[in-house]
């Protein structure tokens, strides 16, 4: 039994990555129940999904992950990592895009500065978020998925792919081909 959160903001492909990871689990004989929380799915709004994996069929598990039981966190935005980190424990593994600048919220200083403890108005890098995450007792992998995606695929939309890839690698799963294939298929699928 293990739990994962994939977090990001509208437009980053949280839903797609969740479906692909769940499908991989199922393809390899495990069970997965996941719930997507996407508000109005509006651009740049909060989107996250809660995935629950088990070796036997999942029938009686809540949609949400209880505090302290988060095993894996993939965050495509540092502030979204902070949003869910309170569910983590000392062994939680996190993959966070640490260089994604604060997107859009930086121009709303009235709540941005207050809740981030960030004093310099108009700060649009997210170093403060990463410094905070580094101070927490979790296993943190920090990468620049956004920039890598732009360089390698000429599209920030592939950041979710790279983050998921890192996570599967770290878990020792040698299923690159299958993962890539599912991604290709889901790009084509009209309804996902």
């Amino acid at each position: 039994m293990s739990n994962m959160i994939i977090a990001g903001i509208g437009g980053q492909g949280v839903n797609k990555l969740s479906r692909i990871i769940a499908q991989l689990a199922v393809n390899h004989g495990r069970y997965c129940q996941y719930t997507v929380h996407k508000g109005g799915a509006q651009s740049l709004g909060i989107v996250y999904s809660e995935l629950r994996f088990a070796d036997t069929e999942i029938t009686m598990l809540a949609a949400e992950i209880p505090a302290g039981k988060l095993d894996y966190l993939i965050a495509l935005d540092p502030y979204e990592a902070i949003r869910h980190i309170k569910l983590a424990n000392n062994n939680t593994q996190c993959w966070v895009d640490g260089k994604r600048p604060a997107l859009f919220i930086e121009r709303m200083p009235e709540f941005f500065n207050e809740s981030t403890g960030n004093q310099s108005t108009g700060n649009n890098n997210s170093d403060d978020a990463m410094v905070y995450l580094q101070s927490l007792p979790v296993k943190l992998t920090e990468a620049n998925y956004y920039q890598q995606a732009l360089t390698r695929y000429q599209s920030a939309k592939m950041a979710n792919f790279l983050a998921g890839y890192d996570c599967l690698r770290a878990l020792g799963l040698q299923i690159d081909d299958e993962y890539q294939l599912l991604f290709k298929q889901s790009v084509k699928a009209a309804v996902l």
Partner: peptide, 15 residues
Amino acid sequence: KAIAVDRTAPPRPGT
């Protein structure tokens, strides 16, 4: 078993 966290994430109303 949850770790102690004393910061909250900024609200993100989307746009």
